[in-house]
Design a binder for these strands. Structure first.
Length: 562
RNA sequence: GACCCCAUCGUCUAGUCAGGUCCAGGACGUCAGGUUUUCAUCCUGAAAACAGGGGUUCGAAUCCCCUUGGGGUCGCCA
């Protein structure tokens, strides 16, 4: 009895910056499946496209995976992850391997060299489309005899290598999610396996690497289902084992279109067009390199801006880029455990009514039989609700740590200012006061600026709610403000507890026990509006001097108005 | 257009494989009340779906067929 091979799954992204949520879900499922079976999860970089740049920023998704807690056993070495004996894990470093197998197919007559140019093929495709015909490569290369083709190749004439597919029969993928998927052999044409630059195509590299790396389960998005037929043919031709396949459905936008990195580019192009049309005399300010990048981007519809440039431009033209990447959600103040939970549930569920679970649970329970076949729309509101629950579930100390870290990372200027003025321990109080009112870590950022404004710069909102809180009733809000100042002055200690005691006691005797009658005018006086953390926390954080200054100023404002 | 895949509330889904316990359950969102020092919460309640049509069967959300709708793919991208 032979042992079943140890489960080895892999996630194989192309190096293109940050990880988008669809990729994250695929990686999550690959990882969970490997963990469940005590196997290995491999990360492989599919960098066979020389047209794409290869700077290190393109590997930002390594950081994203780490942040999500998806750790790879083999692959690029990064922060304690990676390594392994089946490398190198960058396809661009494995060219000799691919060449060896290409030669093998060539010698066996299972592949051949073809000399058509891209332009010639484009014309043929266009003609087919116009004639409402299905395009299929016509094997024109085979019209030239083999010796001539070898001679051309020796002379260095640019060419590709095509795989010769069977002329008849059917091809079946046994898919763990979808069952058997069969197509007719005539649906496939002789696809390219080696490009003119000598690099293998995706199809070829994937098949060779999965074999050499001992991959047992290929879990990937549905967009690859059709490719799988090609991969099976290659595996058969090369005498490779066939892994188990599982194709998961794509994640879509609310309008049903595939959620993709391009969505950001689309949104940006649209906003930029509007900006240029309405600001003819103004241009987007930037340094030379930035402007050059914009120009290139405008010339080529297929070109996408570097993500840093994209964010700069979005800021300049007032465009909110849709959150697509894991990092977008991280910046927006989502917790990794919430994103993981939500993503996992988008396409898989443990059955019954259970929705909330950890990645640990996923690793124990994930299997293909509960993977959804249909595409799932990405619902930001539900993600937000999940994030809210995740934040509320955090112990206070842990929330403070995460909240501080979030400010330091994404709002460092604000954080430094706050801690300089009020001190690090007061930031803790702010964090604690904000936990209950946060659905994301960023929710309370905008509502924290008033703490740092100069006392005499507070602007009072001119809304009904504000007026009502200040002037309605007898005594009115202004009257309470006047009366509360001495109460605050005489406190021996300025703590959340002493403030609470003083305000409650005042409300008891002067406002029929209705704290709101007193709290709301104070809130307006110190913040300018009706939104702040709990009033006792707010006053403590602000400090006694500022509180009294602001209340007095508010009262002066009343007199000026009367 | 061709090929392939899919189809339960607005959304994610349970139930489908082993037909009856389902006039279809949960969650997000929505709406209506309530609690609360504001915002955010929290509590209670409500509206909300088996795409349509044929079969099979005593019985169909569940099995079969057709139609319709949605998605994916059709690159020297991955």
């Amino acid at each position: 009895m032979s042992q079943p091979p140890i489960v080895r799954t892999r996630f194989a992204p192309s190096p293109s910056g940050h990880l988008h949520v669809g990729g994250a879900r695929t990686a999550l499922f690959c990882w969970a499946y490997a963990r469940k079976h005590g196997g290995k999860f491999i990360l492989r970089i599919e960098d066979t496209d020389q047209k794409r740049s290869h700077d290190i920023a393109k590997l930002a998704f390594l950081e994203d995976l780490k942040w999500l807690g998806i750790e790879w056993d083999e692959g690029p070495v990064f922060q304690g992850c990676g390594g392994g004996d089946a490398g190198p894990y960058f396809q661009s470093q494995r060219l000799d391997l691919y060449h060896k197998y290409i030669e093998q197919l060539l010698e066996e007559g299972k592949a051949y060299r073809a000399f058509e140019t891209t332009e010639e093929l484009d014309v043929a495709r266009k003609q087919a489309r116009e004639g409402k015909k299905n395009y299929r490569y016509d094997r024109a290369a085979l019209d030239t005899d083999a010796d001539t083709r070898e001679k051309w190749a020796d002379e260095g004439k640019p060419h590709v290598v095509r795989f010769r597919v069977p002329d008849e029969g059917t091809n079946t993928v046994h898919d763990e999610v979808r069952g058997d998927v069969t197509i007719d052999a005539t649906e496939l044409d002789d696809f390219v396996i080696q490009k003119a630059d000598g690099y293998p195509t995706y199809h070829f590299a994937v098949v060779v690497d999965d074999e050499l790396m001992g991959v047992t389960h290929v879990i990937r998005a549905e967009e690859h289902l059709k490719n799988t037929h090609k991969h099976i043919l290659l595996q058969e031709a090369l005498g490779f084992r066939q892994p188990v396949f599982a194709h998961i459905s794509v994640i879509t936008n609310p309008d049903g279109s595939k959620m993709s990195k391009r969505d950001k580019d689309k949104a940006l192009r649209k906003a930029y067009r509007v900006f240029v049309e309405s600001n003819r005399e103004k241009s987007v300010a930037g340094d030379e390199a930035f402007n050059a990048a914009i120009a290139r981007w405008q010339e080529d519809r297929d070109c996408q801006l570097d993500w840093l440039d994209a964010e700069d431009l979005a800021l300049s033209v007032g465009c909110h880029l849709p959150e697509i990447n894991v990092d977008d959600f991280r910046r927006a103040g989502y917790l990794p455990e919430a994103l993981i939970n939500y993503l996992a549930l988008l396409g898989w569920n443990p059955g019954g009514d259970l929705e909330k679970f950890t990645s640990d649970f996923l690793c124990k329970n994930f299997d293909f039989d509960r993977v959804q076949k249909s595409p799932a729309k990405f619902d930001r509101e539900k993600l937000r609700a999940f994030n809210h629950d995740a934040i509320q579930a955090l112990p206070a100390d842990e929330f403070v740590r995460i909240y501080r870290n979030y400010w330091q990372t994404y709002f460092s200027g604000l954080y430094d200012l706050f801690t300089q003025r009020r001190g690090g321990h007061v930031f803790d109080i702010l964090a604690r006061a904000n936990q209950a009112r946060s659905k994301t870590l960023s929710d309370t950022i905008n509502e924290s600026y008033f703490f740092l404004e100069a006392d005499d710069k507070i602007q009072y909102e001119k809304t009904k709610a504000v007026r009502k809180a200040l002037v309605n009733g007898e005594p009115c809000g202004y009257d309470h403000l006047e009366a509360i100042i001495p109460e605050l002055r005489k406190l021996l200690e300025w703590t959340v507890e002493t403030i609470e005691k003083a305000l409650k006691s005042y409300a008891e005797t002067h406002a029929d026990g209705k704290l709101g009658k007193v709290a709301q005018p104070i809130r307006i006086a110190v913040s300018g509006g009706t939104i702040s953390p709990a009033i006792f926390d707010t006053l403590f954080i602000l400090g006694r001097e500022s509180v009294i200054n602001r209340i007095e100023r508010c009262l002066a404002h009343r007199n000026a108005n009367v």
